[in-house]
Amino acid sequence: MSSRHIISLLMENESGALSRVAGLFSARAYNIESLTVAPTEDATLSRMTIVTVGSEDVIEQIIKQLNKLVDVVKVLDLTEGSHIERELMLVKVRAAGKEREELKRMADIFRGRIIDVADLTYTIELTGTGTKLDAFLEAIDQGAILETVRTGASGIGRGDRILKV
Protein backbone atom coordinates (compact mmCIF):
# COMPACT_ATOMS: atom_id res chain seq x y z
CA MET A 1 0.00 0.00 0.00
CA SER A 2 1.60 3.22 -1.16
CA SER A 3 0.89 6.53 0.46
CA ARG A 4 2.08 10.10 0.16
CA HIS A 5 4.69 11.30 2.63
CA ILE A 6 6.21 14.70 3.28
CA ILE A 7 9.77 14.40 4.45
CA SER A 8 11.54 17.37 5.98
CA LEU A 9 15.24 17.50 6.40
CA LEU A 10 18.00 19.76 7.57
CA MET A 11 21.34 19.52 5.86
CA GLU A 12 24.65 21.32 5.74
CA ASN A 13 24.41 24.17 3.29
CA GLU A 14 27.31 22.83 1.20
CA SER A 15 27.69 22.90 -2.55
CA GLY A 16 26.53 19.61 -3.96
CA ALA A 17 24.23 18.81 -1.04
CA LEU A 18 21.12 19.00 -3.22
CA SER A 19 22.60 16.68 -5.81
CA ARG A 20 23.37 14.10 -3.12
CA VAL A 21 19.70 13.94 -2.22
CA ALA A 22 18.47 14.05 -5.80
CA GLY A 23 21.05 11.41 -6.76
CA LEU A 24 19.96 9.14 -3.93
CA PHE A 25 16.36 9.24 -5.12
CA SER A 26 17.22 8.47 -8.72
CA ALA A 27 19.86 5.82 -7.92
CA ARG A 28 17.46 3.89 -5.70
CA ALA A 29 14.43 4.49 -7.90
CA TYR A 30 12.42 6.33 -5.24
CA ASN A 31 9.63 8.68 -6.31
CA ILE A 32 9.94 12.42 -5.98
CA GLU A 33 6.69 14.34 -6.38
CA SER A 34 8.29 17.61 -5.41
CA LEU A 35 11.39 18.91 -3.71
CA THR A 36 11.99 22.37 -2.34
CA VAL A 37 15.10 23.69 -0.69
CA ALA A 38 16.35 26.98 0.76
CA PRO A 39 18.68 28.13 3.52
CA THR A 40 17.23 28.52 7.02
CA GLU A 41 17.63 31.33 9.56
CA ASP A 42 20.99 29.68 10.28
CA ALA A 43 22.77 30.19 6.97
CA THR A 44 24.91 27.08 7.41
CA LEU A 45 21.81 24.90 7.21
CA SER A 46 19.41 24.24 4.37
CA ARG A 47 15.92 22.92 4.85
CA MET A 48 14.43 20.64 2.30
CA THR A 49 10.91 19.34 1.89
CA ILE A 50 10.48 16.24 -0.23
CA VAL A 51 7.10 14.86 -1.19
CA THR A 52 7.28 11.20 -2.12
CA VAL A 53 5.02 8.22 -2.56
CA GLY A 54 5.85 4.74 -1.38
CA SER A 55 4.93 1.75 0.77
CA GLU A 56 5.83 1.80 4.47
CA ASP A 57 8.95 -0.29 3.75
CA VAL A 58 10.12 2.06 1.03
CA ILE A 59 9.51 5.15 3.17
CA GLU A 60 11.47 3.54 6.02
CA GLN A 61 14.37 2.92 3.63
CA ILE A 62 14.17 6.47 2.23
CA ILE A 63 14.47 7.92 5.71
CA LYS A 64 17.34 5.61 6.63
CA GLN A 65 19.16 6.34 3.39
CA LEU A 66 18.70 10.10 3.83
CA ASN A 67 20.04 9.87 7.37
CA LYS A 68 23.03 8.00 6.00
CA LEU A 69 24.09 10.93 3.81
CA VAL A 70 26.99 12.53 5.60
CA ASP A 71 25.69 16.09 5.06
CA VAL A 72 22.22 15.38 6.42
CA VAL A 73 21.73 16.58 10.00
CA LYS A 74 18.13 15.59 10.69
CA VAL A 75 15.23 13.91 8.95
CA LEU A 76 11.56 13.93 9.89
CA ASP A 77 8.54 12.33 8.25
CA LEU A 78 6.01 15.14 8.75
CA THR A 79 3.12 12.93 7.75
CA GLU A 80 3.69 10.79 10.84
CA GLY A 81 2.15 13.51 13.01
CA SER A 82 0.04 16.60 12.68
CA HIS A 83 1.53 19.12 10.35
CA ILE A 84 0.82 21.98 7.99
CA GLU A 85 1.52 21.84 4.30
CA ARG A 86 1.60 24.82 1.97
CA GLU A 87 2.44 25.36 -1.63
CA LEU A 88 2.58 28.58 -3.61
CA MET A 89 1.20 28.79 -7.14
CA LEU A 90 1.25 31.61 -9.66
CA VAL A 91 -1.30 31.32 -12.46
CA LYS A 92 -1.48 33.57 -15.46
CA VAL A 93 -4.95 33.60 -16.97
CA ARG A 94 -6.52 35.22 -19.98
CA ALA A 95 -8.77 37.89 -18.56
CA ALA A 96 -10.63 40.10 -20.99
CA GLY A 97 -14.08 41.66 -20.74
CA LYS A 98 -16.62 39.63 -18.78
CA GLU A 99 -14.04 37.02 -17.73
CA ARG A 100 -12.29 39.59 -15.53
CA GLU A 101 -15.15 39.72 -13.01
CA GLU A 102 -15.52 35.95 -12.87
CA LEU A 103 -11.81 35.33 -12.35
CA LYS A 104 -11.61 37.97 -9.65
CA ARG A 105 -14.53 36.25 -7.90
CA MET A 106 -12.90 32.81 -8.12
CA ALA A 107 -9.60 34.17 -6.83
CA ASP A 108 -11.45 35.66 -3.86
CA ILE A 109 -13.25 32.41 -3.09
CA PHE A 110 -9.92 30.57 -3.02
CA ARG A 111 -8.32 33.43 -1.09
CA GLY A 112 -5.97 34.16 -3.95
CA ARG A 113 -4.67 37.55 -4.86
CA ILE A 114 -4.30 39.15 -8.22
CA ILE A 115 -0.74 40.38 -8.25
CA ASP A 116 -0.36 41.51 -11.83
CA VAL A 117 -2.97 43.13 -14.01
CA ALA A 118 -2.51 43.67 -17.72
CA ASP A 119 -4.95 44.53 -20.48
CA LEU A 120 -5.64 40.95 -21.36
CA THR A 121 -4.29 38.92 -18.41
CA TYR A 122 -4.31 38.52 -14.67
CA THR A 123 -1.64 36.79 -12.63
CA ILE A 124 -3.10 35.18 -9.54
CA GLU A 125 -1.11 34.13 -6.48
CA LEU A 126 -2.51 31.29 -4.45
CA THR A 127 -1.20 29.33 -1.47
CA GLY A 128 -2.55 26.20 0.12
CA THR A 129 -2.22 22.48 0.02
CA GLY A 130 -1.60 20.86 -3.33
CA THR A 131 -5.22 19.68 -3.46
CA LYS A 132 -6.53 23.19 -2.99
CA LEU A 133 -4.33 24.46 -5.81
CA ASP A 134 -5.55 21.63 -8.03
CA ALA A 135 -9.14 22.50 -7.12
CA PHE A 136 -8.64 26.10 -8.17
CA LEU A 137 -7.27 25.06 -11.54
CA GLU A 138 -10.27 22.82 -12.06
CA ALA A 139 -12.71 25.48 -10.97
CA ILE A 140 -11.71 28.11 -13.49
CA ASP A 141 -12.22 27.94 -17.23
CA GLN A 142 -9.49 25.59 -18.52
CA GLY A 143 -9.14 27.54 -21.70
CA ALA A 144 -8.24 30.67 -19.75
CA ILE A 145 -5.08 29.21 -18.20
CA LEU A 146 -2.00 30.56 -19.97
CA GLU A 147 0.74 29.49 -17.57
CA THR A 148 1.15 28.01 -14.12
CA VAL A 149 4.15 27.73 -11.83
CA ARG A 150 4.17 25.92 -8.49
CA THR A 151 6.83 25.76 -5.80
CA GLY A 152 6.12 22.27 -4.55
CA ALA A 153 5.07 21.71 -0.98
CA SER A 154 6.76 23.09 2.12
CA GLY A 155 5.78 21.65 5.45
CA ILE A 156 6.12 22.22 9.14
CA GLY A 157 4.95 20.34 12.22
CA ARG A 158 2.10 21.66 14.34
CA GLY A 159 2.51 22.95 17.87
CA ASP A 160 5.72 21.82 19.54
CA ARG A 161 6.74 19.43 16.77
CA ILE A 162 9.94 21.22 15.84
CA LEU A 163 12.74 20.24 13.49
CA LYS A 164 15.85 21.96 14.71
CA VAL A 165 19.49 21.12 15.35
Binding site: S15, G16, S19, R20, G23, A27, V70, D71
Partner: peptide
Protein backbone atom coordinates in the same frame (compact mmCIF):
# COMPACT_ATOMS: atom_id res chain seq x y z
CA UNK B 1 35.23 13.77 -10.14
CA UNK B 2 32.92 14.59 -7.26
CA UNK B 3 29.90 14.16 -9.53
CA UNK B 4 31.12 10.94 -11.16
CA UNK B 5 31.97 9.28 -7.86
CA UNK B 6 29.02 10.53 -5.81
CA UNK B 7 26.96 7.34 -6.06
CA UNK B 8 29.91 5.10 -5.20
CA UNK B 9 31.58 6.84 -2.27
CA UNK B 10 30.60 7.15 1.34
CA UNK B 11 31.31 10.84 0.95
CA UNK B 12 33.39 13.18 -1.18
CA UNK B 13 34.81 16.69 -1.09
CA UNK B 14 36.01 19.30 -3.53
Amino acid sequence: AVGITRPCVKHNFL
